[in-house]
Computed example of a mutant assay.
Amino acid sequence: MIVKSRRIYMEDGLKDGFLVVEDGTIKEFLPRTDNEEIIDYGDMRIIPGIFDTHNHGTCGFGLSGEVTQEEIKGYLKGCASQGITNVFPTAERSAIAAVARAAKEHYEGASILGIHSEGPWLNRTGEKGVRTGWPEVSLETAKQMVSHGQGLLKLVAMAPEIPGIAPLAEYFLNKGVVLAMAHSDSNYEEAKRAYEHGFSVSTHTGNVMTGLHHRDVGGLGAALLNDKVDCEVICDGMHISLEMLEIFFRIKSTERFMMISDCTPFSGAPEGVYRGFEEGMTIHVSKDGFVLTDTGRLMGSSQPVLYGIGNLVEKLHMPMEKVWPMFSLNPSRKYGFERNKGSLKALKDADFVVINDEYRTIATYSMGKKVYDAKEGPVFNPDFLREWRQKEV
């Protein structure tokens, strides 16, 4: 297969020419060819495939409860429709085993490279100071999570200040699981100590953590000031304002940021009013695609990483050459996949996305296979709309 574009973002720069794919990998880049059997994308951008390491659901498909294989198949196809070629599904504990099984089936869509568990040990504060508590701190539960993951549990996020959490952190680290600080009420010194003792990722940096204050820079300051910490970041412009994103990228090298979506099943949902996941809750999906409760609180993210890419390039005027490593190369490097993934380079896997100037997916290729084409039409789960939508707008 030979793919042509005037804007191909290779590891060594922006190229105009032909990407030659063979047996699922990039064989070479050619500035010209006499071969007439090419797929010509004209002036559309070809970017490395998005690697989303924090994604709870999308397009009406989720990863909670007793999730079915059909649900996971729909989820992976939905991910591909948003330019994701590789993903760490963020699965609830009850869904870890099912996601691990799905990874072995190689369903059409994004590829499962690992599993992410956000929690269950979280110290959720920040939303009007309401503490929701956490489940029993149990080493047996941690062992069960690793067992159900069948070697695929790669990332566990938790609050390091929770009493009794240290033995669990040590256990996960000994099993090769990366630890992320998440939903934490820790001050700067507490967060600093956690990073000194094995935590190495900041979950959705800036959200549900203690913020910057001139007498204690909190968990956010600890993440930004530590050059060894890799920071997840949501770039939808609502979870973090664009001005704060600019501050992030001035304080810390973009090499230490990983763009994530934190998407939920509401990602891609049409505008309207929906029933919430908690009894009595109502969800509003805005015309801009944001998901809000009746109180105006954000319910995860509804916009994919691709939307955030558009924000950084078009609104913060960052060159795509500086942005694409944050959604592809940096997470690949962090989690040990850089040899084969993370950039467009000869001998690496042919994971790439074709996008238009509105930052919409035209086609997604995973290991040289087209796993999504915009011509297919909507991939949103119709059952989700029938069950959850209360009113169209």
Rank of each mutant, 00 (worst) to 15 (best):
Y359R: 04
T361W: 00
G296T: 03
F199H: 07
T33G: 08
E278S: 13
I38D: 13
V3Y: 15
I234A: 07
M299G: 11
D16W: 07
P48K: 01
S328P: 04
K154D: 00
R333D: 06
V208E: 07
I39F: 15
G296I: 02
E108S: 14
E108C: 15
F384C: 07
I362R: 09
G126Y: 02
Y372D: 14
A223P: 08
S202C: 15
R386L: 14
V146N: 02
N340L: 11
C59W: 01
A194C: 01
R389F: 11
K192N: 10
K143D: 06
G13R: 13
N311Y: 00
R386P: 10
L113P: 01
Y274A: 09
H54G: 11
T53E: 03
F266N: 06
R131D: 07
N207I: 08
P382L: 12
G60N: 01
L245H: 10
M281N: 11
M299N: 12
I38A: 14
Y359V: 04
D227R: 09
P163K: 02
Q150D: 07
K228V: 10
G149W: 00
S5H: 08
A350Q: 14
S200T: 04
E92R: 10
N330D: 14
L153V: 08
V137I: 07
K315A: 04
I260T: 15
K322G: 04
L153R: 02
N381D: 13
V67H: 00
P378D: 14
I72F: 00
M44Y: 13
D227K: 09
G176T: 02
L155C: 03
H239C: 12
S261D: 12
E358P: 05
A223F: 03
V353P: 11
R93S: 11
K287A: 14
K348E: 09
G336I: 01
